[in-house]
């Protein structure tokens, strides 16, 4: 059985861990196209080579990032997620009109972003389309 070097718990049997797939940017759900969203949710790159992946040590519910070569199954580096995700992420107020909720017939378009949401989401922090991708600040070694 492989050993996963956990940044929190040290080397442990890999059966104690859960792999949650590649670390990839989440598209802004209120601005991306349907196709972009569907691709993000349903399609995987399945890259042959070095990928960055989310791993969780199940017993301690600790999430971290591992760089793994999917061809050789070598784990090249593991590090805490805050090496990549170091900044608070916020979501822009709704940009899309409120869709109808079937089976009822469509109602009037949704009102503008509510005061509550606007107040809790400072406009200055609203990430743009290309800022939202959770770009790495640093890669581990």
């Amino acid at each position: 059985m492989k050993i996963m070097p956990c940044p929190l718990n040290g080397p442990r049997n890999i059966q104690e861990f859960i792999c949650a797939g590649p670390v990839e940017p989440h598209p802004d759900p209120s601005r991306c196209s349907d196709d972009e969203w569907a691709e993000f949710v349903w399609l995987e790159e399945n890259l042959a080579g070095v990928v960055r992946e989310w791993w969780c040590h199940a017993a301690t519910s600790y999430w971290f990032i591992a760089e793994r070569n999917t061809v050789t199954d070598e784990i090249l580096a593991t590090y805490p997620a805050d090496r990549v995700f170091s900044e608070r992420v916020d979501f822009a107020p709704l940009a899309l009109p409120e869709p109808p909720a079937p089976p009822e017939p469509p109602k009037a378009p949704a009102p503008p972003p509510p005061a509550e949401a606007a107040a809790d989401t400072p406009a200055g922090d609203a990430p743009s389309d290309d800022a939202l991708p959770l770009a790495p600040k640093e890669t581990g070694g």
């Binding site: 759900p29 209120s30 991306c32 349907d34 969203w37 569907a38 949710v41 979501f91 822009a92 107020p93 709704l94 899309l96 409120e98 869709p99 109808p100 909720a101 079937p102 089976p103 949704a110 009102p111 972003p113 509510p114 509550e116 949401a117 989401t121």
Partner: peptide, 20 residues
């Protein structure tokens, strides 16, 4: 109805548009 985000919000809305 007025939130900018919850996990899966886009999928929920796309499904709502497609109909049941």
């Amino acid at each position: 109805k007025k939130k900018p985000f919850h996990v899966g919000i886009r999928s929920v809305r796309m499904q709502a548009e497609k109909g049941l």
